[in-house]
Amino acid sequence: MSSTTADRAQRRRAPHLGPERRRPHVLDAARAIAVADGIGAVTVGSVATAMGVTRPVVYACFSDRVELVDALLDRESADLLDAILTALHSSADINDPERAFVDGFRALLSAAAAAPDTWRLVFSGEPDPAIAERFRAAKAHVQTQATEWIRPAMERWWETADLERKLPVLIDLFLSACESAVRSLLDTSNDWGPDDLGTLVGKAIHRAFAEA
């Protein structure tokens, strides 16, 4: 069978999957395009081409480009937020403060390693208002959750003086460290893994908080 004939056969078979089963694949293709070329490159046509299907197959899943992009950003921001909050809460009950920070960063980086394109979408799409707005809202939620976890922890572990004045600065430091750690993990020019990088960053941030 020639490549042209095979392509045509694949396109004829594609609708048989059904929209419900195909939507995640459509969003995966849209994410890959967004990471590589920006969210502006995500169109019904570009997604159809990437998947090797016709445009009606994509239209059966999403009525237009706006709905497609909204669904992509909704899914990726929800996945990102869930991963961060899971990592944050993974060390909430540990009495050893250094271990708490190390375990939290390890969990965060393991989540990033498991879904690298979700995180790359955030970093590659920062200048794009559509992406920035979604993930800014997610970051604000994480900031609130991190404050709720870190404030009582610092009171319990170190009885930090003047905590309310210092806390906003420390939370910004914590969130910046999270972002920097993920960027380093996704940088293919180095050989960091989630455990060794999480240990390094977790210990460093623990020292910063303890000395505050």
Rank of each mutant, 00 (worst) to 15 (best):
W192V: 01
G125E: 10
G104P: 09
L85P: 04
S90N: 08
E179S: 08
T144C: 02
I94G: 05
R106Y: 13
V26K: 00
A161Y: 13
E133W: 08
D64S: 07
P24V: 00
L109K: 01
D79Q: 15
R55N: 11
L109Q: 03
V53Y: 06
S91P: 13
P129K: 01
D196V: 06
R22V: 00
D37N: 09
A130S: 09
D79T: 07
H206A: 10
V66I: 08
A114K: 11
K139Q: 13
T188Y: 04
P116R: 03
D196M: 06
A6P: 03
R75W: 03
A36V: 05
W158Q: 08
L185S: 10
A130E: 09
L173A: 07
G52V: 04
E148G: 04
A208F: 05
N95F: 13
F105E: 11
A181Y: 09
R106M: 09
G125V: 06
R75C: 06
H16P: 03
Q145L: 04
R55E: 15
L80D: 08
P129V: 06
E126H: 12
G198H: 03
A138H: 07
G202D: 09
I205Y: 03
D117M: 05
S189P: 01
E98L: 06
L81N: 07
V57D: 14
K139S: 14
D187Y: 14
A114Q: 11
D64T: 08
L185M: 12
L185F: 12
M154V: 04
A71Y: 02
V58G: 03
